[in-house]
């Protein structure tokens, strides 16, 4: 266990070191969520006046939850790009060779994804409060949202890790990104679930991220709802993709 942790620490340190010492990696990580947040809140704020839209904290808080979860998911996927790059450049082989316990490699990437997302989350939260986001509820509600987003981040990086370790090329990028993109945007992004109609409503109903998004918004509103379903969905995805990532690791080992 100690050796696994040491491997995880090494892999996480290296990933974070590379991200935070390279403006080309760190700036997009902060700029994209900020862009989405300002674009959605600024351009779509009148949706708050649509009949049936009853979200007391306003459209800024409504969109903040989505952008926070989106940044968590894409933070995981972007870390997956780095894993694929490591395989393409041969650096992953060095990790596989040097690490007596290889499970630590996957854990290390997941820890790095979480840490880099935390920086984005703090940045986004500061901006949201600066532009007047209103938060209801007790002191536990907002942290509950961050924990939920952290689980989403872990699920996303484990998904991307499994893909990267199977395909072992940067060309795997769209395979990692596209499903996450679809799951995110087939959830009630711009309006609450009750205002969606037609096929998109049907898809959103079965989309596990809908539960996560609705629960997240309820935390910010101070009236938690669907908490068990949201945590269950996020945790279930994380466990499923942990298995997927470990199977990917075994495939990478077998491929040499």
């Amino acid at each position: 266990m100690k050796r696994n942790l040491s491997v995880a620490q090494g892999v996480a340190w290296r990933t974070l070191h590379n991200v935070f010492t390279n403006p080309s990696l760190v700036i997009p990580q902060l700029a994209f969520p900020l862009f989405f947040f300002t674009a959605f809140v600024g351009g779509l704020s009148r949706i708050h006046n649509v009949p049936g839209f009853h979200y007391a904290q306003g459209y800024t808080a409504f969109q903040f939850v989505f952008v926070l979860l989106q940044s968590a998911a894409f933070g995981g996927v972007f870390t997956g790009f780095g894993i694929a790059r490591d395989f393409e450049t041969g650096f992953a082989r060095r990790l596989l060779l040097a690490a007596p316990h290889r499970t630590g490699i996957v854990i290390g990437y997941a820890v790095a994804a979480l840490c880099r997302w935390l920086v984005t989350a703090i940045f986004l939260t500061v901006i949201a409060f600066a532009v007047g986001m209103k938060v209801g509820g007790s002191g536990i509600d907002l942290p509950a949202l961050y924990v939920l987003a952290a689980i989403v981040n872990s699920a996303a990086v484990l998904w991307a890790c499994g893909v990267a370790m199977r395909l072992r090329t940067m060309q795997a990028g769209p395979v990692m990104q596209m499903p996450v993109f679809l799951v995110l945007f087939f959830a009630p992004v711009y309006v609450p679930l009750n205002l969606l109609t037609g096929w998109i409503h049907g898809v959103a109903l079965v989309n596990p991220l809908t539960r996560v998004l609705e629960a997240g918004r309820s935390f910010v509103a101070g009236s938690p709802a669907q908490v068990a379903a949201a945590y269950g969905a996020a945790f279930g995805l994380a466990v499923l993709f942990a298995w997927w990532a470990m199977r990917g690791l075994r495939k990478a080992e077998a491929a040499g």
């Binding site: 040491s6 491997v7 090494g10 892999v11 340190w13 290296r14 070191h17 040097a98 690490a99 007596p100």
Partner: peptide
């Protein structure tokens, strides 16, 4: 130096 530091961590 960072490479050696990483290797040392990987080898605990």
């Amino acid at each position: 130096r960072e490479h050696l530091r990483l290797q040392a961590a990987l080898q605990a």
